[in-house]
Amino acid sequence: MFDSVWYRLNNSDSFRPAYVWPFARRMDPAWHHVSLGRLRDPNPLFDTEWYVAKRPEAADRGNVPLLHYLARGAGEGLDPNPDFSSADYFRRYPDAQASGLTALEHFALLGAREGRDPRHEPTSRPKSSGNLRLVCVFSHFDAAGRILPYVQRYLSELGRCGFEVHLVSTSPNLSTSDRRKAERAGVRVHCRENAGMDFASWQWALHHVVPLAEVDWLLLANDSVFGPIFDLEPVFRSQFAENWDFWGITDSYEVAWHLQSYFLCLRGDVARSEAFRKVFAVDFARLTKRSIIRSGEISLSQSLLRSGFRGNAVCPFDRLRKFRSFRQCNATHFYWDQLIARLRCPFIKRQLIRDNPMKLASAGYWKGFLERYTSYDTSLISDAILPVENVLPS
């Protein structure tokens, strides 16, 4: 139940030479936890602060909250974090209850890698999308002209969820074989000039290939994320059932609240609204990346809110309770592990793994983390982050 790599990376301040106990930097992480860091999280699934708030005696007289949970709390029906339901987990998976393990132990040791879901059961059963017309416009770019396997898998998952998928590529010399593979899977592939980034590609598709008058739900997506790490179908069902006007996977408070546009779903009437049309009247092809973020991503959410539409994030920043005070940060970088382990965020940012622009120590643990807490095929990521010169023909 103790993730030593994750613990060391997320408590690096305790292992630095300047720490008040110099010998601590040489400690085994598990020994550090029980002796000095017992009030810190031992793994991304156990929220120590939240658990102690429920059972204050778990931290009394030098107690280690994780050990209290394993010895007593789990048997009394307590959960390891607010997004984990032991009762619902056992109800879903009788074999887990029969194992004799706590729900957290079973999930961490077996369930996570098997793709099991520890979240609370929804209060009402999500409705099917039925005969709705679901259309996805997917923005794509690859310097070598490839449609990489992780993208092919992503597109396939969207098709399985009922979407008509339009891939708009700005890649030079798009691979004929990759294009045919995507088209055999039902994806409609379009090419355009490389200008204006994602918003210009979505704009082009809405002008040339997608008749919005016939669309019930419009999904704007791109290849800047790896995944889906978890099944997307329950996400679509729940969001459609709740009937949000527009929704995304994650949100941000940088500049102003907005849904991050790597995955943005809008009901048809919202995509036909004046607020939406006004944002997509901007000439994105002439703008810099920073201007596109402001005039596209941020402006779109804000314009829709001002028009009275309701927006929702599947994995909202405000669910990361410990970090609510840090509203000016990108959670998909700073708290990527919390998003995946606790909120089952179905994506991880490609830039985080490939470039790590914030120089986060935890980013280097992506492979071990995904293999421990998800069933996603990490070879799809490893192949995708190879330098372009390593894959271009000589």
Rank of each mutant, 00 (worst) to 15 (best):
V209K: 14
V210S: 12
V210G: 01
V210W: 12
P211Y: 11
L212N: 05
A213W: 03
A213G: 15
E214F: 00
E214K: 12
E214I: 00
V215H: 04
V215C: 07
D216V: 01
D216P: 03
D216W: 02
D216M: 10
W217N: 05
L218V: 09
L218I: 03
L220C: 01
N222W: 02
N222C: 03
N222E: 05
S224M: 08
V225N: 07
G227L: 01
I229Y: 04
F230G: 02
D231Y: 04
D231H: 09
V235S: 04
F236G: 00
Q239A: 10
Q239S: 13
F240H: 06
F240Y: 10
F240V: 02
F240G: 01
F240N: 09
F240W: 14
F240A: 00
F240Q: 04
F240I: 14
A241N: 14
E242K: 15
N243E: 14
N243F: 12
F246S: 11
W247S: 13
W247N: 12
G248I: 02
G248L: 07
G248C: 11
G248Q: 13
I249M: 13
D251H: 12
D251R: 13
D251N: 14
S252A: 02
S252C: 06
Y253D: 08
Y253M: 09
E254Q: 09
E254R: 14
V255D: 04
V255A: 13
V255I: 08
A256G: 12
A256V: 09
W257I: 01
W257M: 06
W257N: 11
H258M: 04
L259I: 15
Q260N: 14
